[in-house]
Amino acid sequence: MNIFRLCGDMSHLAAIIILLLKMWKTRSVAGISGKSQILFATVFTARYLDLFTSFISIYNTCMKVFFIGTVYFTIYLIYMKFKATYDSNHDSFRVEFLIVPVGGLAFLVNHEFAPLEIIWTFSIYLESVAILPQLFMISKTGEAETITSHYLFALGSYRALYLCNWIYRYYAEGFFDLIAVVAGVVQTILYCDFFYLYITKVMKGKKISLPA
């Protein structure tokens, strides 16, 4: 464990808590993409299959349980409890255009052609594009609530911090995982446009409103 990875995990944790607070306080899921949350649930389920077979640390297990638990709770809030406020018309990204290529790529490019490893690789590739339905929804509605912007900033920062973690681990431990790094770079790049808007607008107290 290193400070970059710890900050990354905390940023990820903060993003999930911000999202839950937004939903619970406003009792609304307006502006939130249920499809992205379903993709994140798929990512966590696929990545944490080893939750019961390999024990890394208490921290690792607790975080995995928390991430899986909260993402399914988020889906429950979107599609059941606050279903009336879910904006399905604007949440229209075709996720099959993500899942099929990512699934194919996981078969072709992986560290080891073994079931658990291919599923792990699938979760890494899927995570890098899982935010697209959410970003697409914001571009369609033309705006994002400030709290949703904070959620996205924390979520984007988490993988950016993981990139720092991988640089650190390369020099400190000689650890290098090309698949995770490449997917992490793609994932972070997808947020750059949003980071720019966040820093130039939200940090000055303005709302993010894209030219619709």
Binding site: R5, D9, H12, R47, D50, S54, I56, N60, M63, K64, F67, H111, W120, Y162, N165, E173, G174, F175, F176, D177, L178, A180
Partner: peptide
Amino acid sequence: PVIEEGHDEL
């Protein structure tokens, strides 16, 4: 590249 058995990151 060094690949550990399994993955220790979240």
